[in-house]
């Protein structure tokens, strides 16, 4: 464990805790952004440049903005609620701990099976197999996405398109006198 890892991991964990613990929703969103940046820094430290920068573009550039917009457009201006402990708190804590134990266990176990799990992916394109997992280039990533993983990519694209059309339909204002019938006008 290097010093850089300790600093980045500490900052990431601390901002994740802050994102849950702070009372002001916008402050929570901003600490979540710090956590995203910390994750990106961890990817960079592991030598995954592309994933690290894409993490910044997608999560800080898009997801964080979406969260912030959602807060502002719904209830961001409300006074923050005071902290309180409810009956749900012990349940929430125990579920969180259980999830962490399961995930940590899986991560610890997977280290022993690191090589077999990498091998099937490498077989598909033998020219990159010699360089090992750390030297996967952006080009080979793109070739894989357009080759081996093209079906999952297309399915994801279809899913997102469907979600977007649904969102547009929900947001669309109902027009008056558009042949839609009188009862719909009253709701609008």
């Amino acid at each position: 464990m290097s010093v850089a890892f300790v600093i980045i991991a500490g900052l990431t964990a601390a901002s994740a805790v802050a994102a849950m613990a702070l009372r002001n929703l916008v402050h929570c969103a901003l600490s979540l952004v710090v956590m995203f940046a910390g994750l990106a820094a961890l990817y960079l430290q592991l030598g995954a440049e592309f994933v690290g920068f894409v993490q910044v573009i997608v999560y800080i550039g898009a997801v964080a903005i979406l969260i912030v917009f959602a807060i502002l457009l719904t209830r961001g201006m409300e006074q923050p609620a005071p902290a309180r402990i409810t009956t749900a708190t012990p349940w929430a804590v125990s579920i969180a701990v259980a999830t962490f134990v399961v995930m940590a266990g899986a991560a610890v176990k997977s280290r022993k099976f690191e090589k077999p799990s990498v091998a099937p992916a490498v077989q598909a394109s033998p020219d990159t197999s010699k360089q090992g997992a750390s030297a996967i280039s952006v080009k080979s990533m793109g070739v894989r996405l357009m080759g081996d993983y093209v079906v999952p990519l297309q399915v994801l694209g279809l899913l997102l398109t469907a979600a977007m059309i649904g969102a547009v339909l929900i947001a669309m204002p109902e027009r008056k006198g558009d042949g839609g019938g009188g009862e719909e006008v009253d709701r609008g």
């Binding site: 920068f53 910044v56 573009i57 800080i60 550039g61 964080a64 903005i65 952006v138």
Partner: peptide, 15 residues
């Protein structure tokens, strides 16, 4: 990743 880096730092300014 030169170009990706440029757009990543550009995206960070929006916040």
């Amino acid at each position: 990743t030169g170009l990706v880096f440029f757009f990543a730092v550009g995206a960070a300014t929006e916040l």
